[in-house]
Each structure stands twice: as structure tokens, then as C-alpha cells.
Design a protein around this nucleic acid. Structure first.
Length: 113
DNA sequence: TGGGTGACCATAG
DNA sequence: ACTATGGCCACCC
């Protein structure tokens, strides 16, 4: 059992790691899955610390509600997020995912299965 | 201890 | 349709 002070962070990281390749989700969806009480801001804040994790956290698969790559600027390089997404056959145009709704992966729905 | 901050979201004007 | 604002709550100094 992982006993860390940042349980919330671990929860977020865990969910993000569960995102299948070629799929994306939103901060709000993760917050909703962890509990409506959790604000989406905390998810974004957790992602900010994701780089500190040794295990690879596919943060590029997490975008905002509009499908925009708002967090791209926080990657090693601004173009890295887009590059990683395109590598997973996800089209990105103007920092936004094309057919975002089509790639959307909601943990509160998918994980229930 | 307290206050500021944040890779967001929803609502109101 | 677009812009502005409040709320949300864990983390850091």
C-alpha cells in the first residue's frame, strides 16, 4: 500500500496511466471520477507535479474540456504534447484535438465496465 | 497559521 | 456568440 501524503496526486496519476493509447480525457472527467468534490484545478495541479514522478505519466492524453492542449507549455517542449498525440493517431490542429469527442475517454464510464 | 496559486469548469450578463 | 467572474480544494512558502 502506498502511503503518501499526496493521496490525491497518486489517484490522479493512477487514472491517467489507465488511459488507453489513442484516447484522451479531460481534467474534469478525472475529477469527476475521483469525486465531484475534487475540483478539476487540483487535477491540473497534480499534473504539474507529474513530471516529478519516476513512472511515465501520459499527461499528453489529458486536455481541458474544450479538447485544447492547455498544458503543452508545461512539457519539456511545447510541441512535445502534440507530437505524442499524433504519434497515437490523434490529430491535433491549433493546439486542439480534432474530433475530440470521438477520442474522449471517461474513466467514470469506461472503468465501471 | 494563513494566504496565494493553479495544465479547470460552469454560469451569468 | 463572447467575456467576465466565482468556486473549487490540495499544495507550497
Amino acid at each position: 500500500m502506498i502511503n503518501n501524503n499526496s493521496d490525491f496526486f497518486n489517484q490522479v496519476f493512477q487514472v491517467v496511466r489507465l488511459i488507453p493509447q489513442g484516447r484522451v480525457t479531460s481534467y474534469g472527467a478525472i475529477a469527476n471520477y475521483l469525486g465531484a468534490k475534487s475540483s478539476a484545478r487540483l487535477v491540473g495541479y497534480a499534473m504539474n507535479a507529474s513530471h516529478s514522478q519516476q513512472e511515465h505519466v501520459p499527461a499528453h492524453r489529458v486536455v481541458n474540456r474544450n479538447g485544447q492542449l492547455t498544458g503543452k507549455h508545461h512539457f519539456a517542449n511545447p510541441h512535445l504534447m502534440k507530437d505524442l498525440l499524433e504519434k497515437e493517431d490523434i490529430a491535433v490542429d491549433k493546439d486542439a484535438i480534432v474530433n475530440f469527442k470521438n477520442y474522449f475517454w471517461d474513466p467514470s464510464i469506461e472503468l465501471v465496465l
